[in-house]
Amino acid sequence: MAGNGATTRRLLTLFPLHVTLIFLLGANGADAATSFSFANECSHPVWVGVLSGATSPQLPRTGFYLAPGGTSSLAAPSSGAWSGNFWARTGCAVDEGTGRLACATADCGSGDVACDGRGPAPPVTLAEITLAAPGSGGLDFYDVSLVDGFNLPVSIAPAHGGCQAAACAGDVNAVCPSDLSVASGSSGEVVACKSACNAYGSARYCCSGDYGTPAACGPTSYSQVFKAACPAAYSYAYDDASSTFTCSAAATYHITFCPAT
């Protein structure tokens, strides 16, 4: 993942500081290892990317192909807490000259289906999660983030009746401002929408420098476009109140690409 300000901070830590602090103070946690299930409800294939946090072990697969209507699953480590994120790459194909896989959106740059510890190039919709250690009494934290832009709708839902899903089910590409839009070279179709931080790199849009606190960095006209399309997703770095979700004792988290609106 490339970028400045808030984007760079998320690359290094995977989650904002507030999530890490709340996680460490959480209560009422899970007692067993967690699994992740994946479903592709898009009309096109996706290549899932998986990135573990800096202190978390790598999952058994760091990338895999999902056909339309396809499903898959991964198990989280049973030995302790885990943090990481998931995303969908689109428009992927193998280059005949180099033999490397390249994707139109959210490419992780590995040249392969597996991302091998590499994060996605923005713009990308991220499903982020921090799991409590089994038996620790801690809470899991999860969200859908548009801080690094948007490429397709995503939801993450715990298999637990008392916990809410985090989702961006709206099509941000359909309402993306022209100066943030990323179009396909062949068709001109908008395939992704940059965040203002990605596009301009300014402290104001990236919540960095003089704007590096929640009090100093509020929503902008650009982030409000994202928020209107996806009210429950992070639209900028400090968009916490309506965008961070918690759960305890969820055995499975379901990640769905292109969930029904």
Rank of each mutant, 00 (worst) to 15 (best):
S56R: 10
N40A: 11
A75G: 00
A54D: 04
L59W: 03
P45E: 02
S79C: 00
W47E: 06
C42L: 07
F38M: 03
R61M: 12
R61Q: 15
G49C: 09
P77Q: 06
E41D: 14
S72R: 00
S72N: 10
Y65V: 13
G70N: 00
P77D: 13
L51K: 14
F64H: 11
C42T: 13
V46M: 08
A54L: 04
G53I: 09
P77W: 03
S52L: 03
L74M: 14
L51H: 08
G69R: 04
S37M: 05
G63M: 05
A54I: 10
V48Q: 14
F36T: 15
Q58I: 15
P45F: 03
S56A: 15
S73E: 08
L66H: 06
R61G: 00
V50M: 07
H44P: 00
Q58S: 15
T55S: 15
A76M: 07
P45N: 09
S78N: 05
P57M: 05
F38Y: 10
T71N: 13
F38D: 03
R61D: 07
N40Q: 10
A39L: 12
A67L: 04
P68A: 06
S56V: 09
P60E: 13
A67P: 03
F64K: 06
A76T: 08
G53R: 08
P60V: 00
S56I: 05
A76I: 05
S79D: 11
Y65H: 11
F36R: 12
V48N: 13
L51V: 11
C42M: 10
T62S: 15
T55R: 11
L74P: 14
F38P: 12
P57S: 08
L59Y: 05
S78Q: 11
P57K: 06
F38S: 03
F36E: 15
G69K: 01
W47V: 10
N40D: 11
L51A: 11
S72F: 06
A39Y: 02
T71P: 01
L66G: 04
G53M: 09
G53F: 05
T71E: 08
L74I: 10
S79K: 08
G70V: 01
V48A: 15
S52H: 10
V48C: 14
P77Y: 03
